[in-house]
Simulated scan of single mutants.
Amino acid sequence: MHRPTHVSPRAARTTLCALGAAALAVSLTACGSGSSNPFDDHQEKSSYQDGAAAKSDRKSVPRWLPDDASDITYVMSTTGDDRIMKFTTPDGKFPAQCAKGEPQGKPRLKADWFPSDLAAKADTNCGTWSGARVDGALYAWQDKDVAMKARG
C-alpha cells in the first residue's frame, strides 16, 4: 500500500528557494564575459583586416587610421570614450597628420596584446589619441577625459 508523503510548507519553500538560487547562479555564470573585471562587460572588441573596413564598421575608430593599415585590433568602452588599438602600416609609421608629442591622459582599458607600459613609451599624438611603435606594431589609446575636454 502506497502512503502519500507529507512535506511541510516550510520544507517545500526552503527546497524551492534553494532550487531558485541555484538556477539564478547558473544563469548569471552563463552570461557576460567570464571575466572577474566588472568593466569587461562594458567593452566591445573588434579586429579588422584593414583600416577602411574598421572605419566603415565603427564610427568610433579614428578617421586618421590609414585605409591601408592592417592587422587592426580594437577595444572600446561602451560607457565612455576610452579606446585602445593595435595596427600596422606599410611604412611602419603613424600617418602624416600625427605629430611627436607627450602622451595625453593614460590608457584605461587593458588587453593581453596591449603593452602595459605603453604610456611611458608614447611619443606620438593623433588628435586626442596617443601612441607609440613597439616591436614593429603601432599602438594607440584615447583617454575619455582627453576626448571630453577636446569636445569642449
Rank of each mutant, 00 (worst) to 15 (best):
A25D: 04
A52Y: 15
D50G: 10
V75P: 09
S77A: 14
K149T: 09
L28T: 10
A132F: 03
D57N: 10
V61H: 12
T88H: 10
D135H: 10
S60H: 09
D145S: 13
Y48D: 07
A23L: 14
Y48N: 04
S8D: 09
S8E: 09
R133Q: 15
Y48W: 14
A54Q: 05
R151H: 07
A53D: 11
T14R: 12
R83Q: 08
H6G: 00
R108V: 05
K93M: 11
A122L: 02
V7A: 11
D81F: 08
D82S: 06
G32D: 05
D68P: 03
K59I: 11
K121S: 01
G20P: 10
S46D: 14
D82G: 01
D41I: 10
S33K: 09
L24G: 04
M85C: 06
S60R: 15
L16M: 15
D112E: 15
A54I: 04
F94C: 01
Q49K: 07
N125K: 12
K144A: 14
K45I: 00
K110P: 01
D82Y: 01
D82V: 00
W113N: 03
C17F: 06
P103G: 05
G105V: 05
F94K: 11
D123R: 02
P107R: 09
Q49I: 00
D67P: 00
T88F: 00
A69D: 06
D41T: 13
G20W: 09
L28N: 12
Y74L: 09
V75I: 15
S60M: 11
N37R: 04
S8Q: 08
G92N: 01
S46C: 13
Q104H: 02
K55P: 12
Q104K: 15
F39V: 13
K59P: 04
Y48A: 03
S130I: 00
V146P: 07
M148E: 15
D41H: 04
D81S: 11
P4V: 10
T124N: 02
V61N: 11
S130E: 04
A137M: 02
